[in-house]
C-alpha cells in the first residue's frame, strides 16, 4: 500500500528526514511515535505530497506520489496530476481544518462534488450516511464553529471518508482535543481500523497504538530508529532512545 524508500527532506539547510524507509501493508495500521521534531508529521505529509520530498521515492497504491520516472530521472508532476494522485488518500489534521464557511454536511460533500463531479443529491445522501457513521447525523447542518473539537474531528474523518479512500493519514488527530473528547475520536478510528482501512497514524496515544497498531515505528532525529509490532516496540524496546522516550511519556 505505502512503500517509501530513502526519503530525504530538508527545511532550508536542516535535514528533517534523513533517508527514511517505511512501509504499510494493505489493511495495516501503522503508528508513528517519537519526540516532537523527530520528523513524524513531515513523513506523513510527504506520503500525500503535501510536502515535496528532496530525495527517495514514495509509492502509494502502486503510483509514485507527486512524481514520475522519465528516462533516468524522477521529475515532479504538474499540480493537476499531483491532485489526481491524492484521490484515494485521505488525511485528518491535528487542527481539524474543517472548511469554516461550510456546514458539517457541506464539508463532507465538497470534495466528492468538486473533484468527482458527484450530484448534490448523491453527495448529500452520502454525507448524511458518513456523519451517521461517526455519530453526528444530528449535527449535519451545524457550522464548525458550533461544534466541539471532538465533533469537528469526527466530521473531518467523515470528510476524508467521502472520497472513498483506501488509505487515511492521521496527523496527531487527538492532540488538539480536550482530554474528555479524545475518546470519541479514538472510538471512530478504532471502528475504521476494524473495518480494514489502511491507516498511518502519528500519535502520542501510546495505549491506543498498542491496541490497534499492526506496526509501530519510533522516529528520532529524522530516522526510523525502531520498527516492529506494537508488543515489540512498545513493551520490549531494544533501542535506548525508544526506551527513554517511552519512559518519559508513559
Amino acid at each position: 500500500m505505502v512503500d517509501a524508500r530513502g526519503v530525504r527532506k530538508y527545511f532550508g539547510s536542516h535535514e528533517v528526514l534523513r533517508g527514511v524507509d517505511f512501509a504499510v501493508a494493505d489493511g495495516g495500521v501503522a503508528c508513528l511515535i517519537g519526540p516532537s521534531g523527530s520528523g513524524k508529521s513531515t513523513l506523513l505529509r510527504c506520503i500525500n505530497h503535501l510536502e515535496p520530498i528532496d530525495a527517495g521515492a514514495i509509492v502509494v497504491n502502486g503510483a509514485l506520489i507527486g512524481h514520475a520516472v522519465r528516462g533516468s530521472h524522477i521529475v515532479e508532476l504538474p499540480e493537476r496530476q499531483i491532485a489526481r494522485n491524492r484521490i484515494g488518500l485521505g488525511m485528518v489534521f491535528q487542527r481539524f481544518n474543517l472548511f469554516a464557511h461550510l456546514t458539517a454536511a457541506d464539508n463532507v460533500m465538497c470534495a466528492p462534488m468538486t473533484v468527482r463531479g458527484m450530484s448534490r443529491a448523491d453527495a448529500r445522501r452520502q454525507a448524511l450516511e458518513l456523519l451517521d457513521r461517526v455519530g453526528l447525523a444530528a449535527r449535519a447542518d451545524h457550522y464548525p464553529a458550533q461544534l466541539s473539537g471532538g465533533q469537528q474531528q469526527r466530521v473531518a474523518i467523515a470528510r476524508a471518508l467521502a472520497m472513498d479512500p483506501n488509505l487515511i493519514l492521521f496527523d496527531e488527530p487527538t492532540s488538539a482535543l480536550d482530554p474528555e473528547l479524545v475518546g470519541e475520536v479514538l472510538a471512530v478510528m478504532r471502528d475504521l481500523a476494524r473495518s480494514g482501512m489502511t491507516m498511518v497514524i502519528v500519535t502520542h496515544e501510546i495505549a491506543f497504538a498498542r491496541e490497534i497498531a499492526t506496526s509501530v515505528s519510533f522516529m528520532d532525529d529524522g530516522l526510523i530508529v525502531e520498527q516492529g509490532s506494537a508488543a515489540d516496540v512498545l513493551d520490549n524496546p531494544c533501542n535506548p532512545r525508544t526506551r527513554a522516550f517511552l519512559k518519559a511519556v508513559l
Binding site: L50, F99, C110, A111, M163
Partner: peptide, 25 residues
C-alpha cells in the same frame, strides 16, 4: 493555511481550492 492544505489533501486542484475554499472565506 490549514484550509488550503485540507482542500489539497482532498485532491482539489489550485483553481478549485481558490474558488470553493479560499475566495468564499
Amino acid at each position: 493555511e490549514g484550509q488550503v492544505e485540507a482542500a489539497r489533501a482532498l485532491a482539489m486542484t489550485f483553481p478549485q481550492v481558490t474558488r470553493k475554499i479560499v475566495l468564499p472565506q
